[in-house]
Design a protein around this nucleic acid. Structure first.
Lengths: 122, 122, 122, 122
DNA sequence: GTGGTCTAGACCACT
DNA sequence: GTGGTCTAGACCACA
């Protein structure tokens, strides 16, 4: 019934959704983001919350405002995002994950074999 | 300069450190946790914050309070933790990680094989 | 890539350009302003925005509309503008500038003497 | 009766005040900013508006949050601000001012002599 | 139509 | 005590 995760603010989750959409090409460069009001109505969330999410995207140069028109994905956004997120993942997130796996006494090899199959299918 | 992560409350990070120590065997069952004062002084953190972290461990039956003596790791803590955390990891965390890797266009196989080598060494 | 300043509405910036042209003598009294369509095409701006800019000039009696012909700079526009803008500058803008220079620890004397030399040349 | 300028959002004006305070040493490095609630009560402004102002300062690394404690001016803030603002002034603002003065047919020299005296007195 | 700003008031987490 | 988040609703400027 509720699509929101309580661990993170809604505006952060909205931001993450947009980022995921850009990464997988669903939102192409030059495309307009759905308007604040539209999203607000659809998800029954206060417009201010959407604004906040969108603002963080503008701050990160992933999206630009065209005044009176709306918000648009900037050219190069997908590529930049990809590079930046890959880097963050490899240098910051992955080592933590490996350490956690080690601490839990799990086998990377087993995880690999389980997930590789799924990876092939999807 | 600052050892704390802004994304998570300090008491949560303190808790996580203790849990890692228990999993690791660094803090064996029956061992005393460092006193609130000691940790407070070492990390320059409000003693109340340490207490809160310790309390969550008591609530999860990983640690017990012995009045006038301090906090002690309960028998079976390591084993219970291991089961519980493994389960959480496999059902909740790992699928998210796999999805993120896919979205970033990285190869799970490459990541794992690179790390498995390191795993052998450590 | 974008000639517009995000701090100010586009129609205001358009207006300011015309005013600068009049002050400069580039647009003499009696001259026709470039047509709305022409400007709209050149700057890729909505014609309504140009109209709005021109309207503010009409409201300030700097420009007059001649139906079917276009907009024309009114006689005396340059002189009136000069008086009015000089007054605004001296009473409102210059004190703020002086204060800002003071706060930044810069020397008004140095700034002015450097620029006076350039002034002689231009 | 109203201390706010309608040309700029309140949160921007609040931000500018704090910056001015840091620049002239009124708010020293390491000092706590007045709390959101306190400012909100004093100026009869919504706490959210203050928060927004403070957040921009955090984003610019001029101020740091200490959770549960408040906002503090970071070490080096004054010096960094000074360098950064001087640079902005000299490269971006001053040329515009000089051009405006030229366009208005005012004399830098006269402005100089008028203001230097005041500068000496204050 | 678009986004930006602000209020009043609520609730939460952290120290 | 501190700041963070969110809602409901209002009003404004811009294109």
């Amino acid at each position: 019934m509720n699509q929101w995760n309580d661990d993170q603010p809604i505006y952060r989750q909205l931001r993450d959704r947009v980022i995921a959409s850009i990464l997988d090409g669903e939102l192409a460069e030059g495309d307009a983001l759905p308007s604040v009001r539209q999203v607000a109505a659809e998800f029954r969330v206060n417009p201010l919350t959407i604004s906040k999410a969108y603002q963080t995207l503008v701050d990160d140069d992933l999206v630009e405002k065209r005044r009176g028109l709306g918000m648009y994905v900037v050219p190069g956004a997908q590529e930049n995002l990809l590079r930046q997120e890959q880097d963050k993942f490899l240098t910051r997130e992955w080592p933590v994950i490996v350490e956690r796996i080690r601490l839990l006494g799990l086998s990377l090899k087993d995880l690999l074999s389980t997930s590789i199959n799924k990876e092939g299918r999807s």
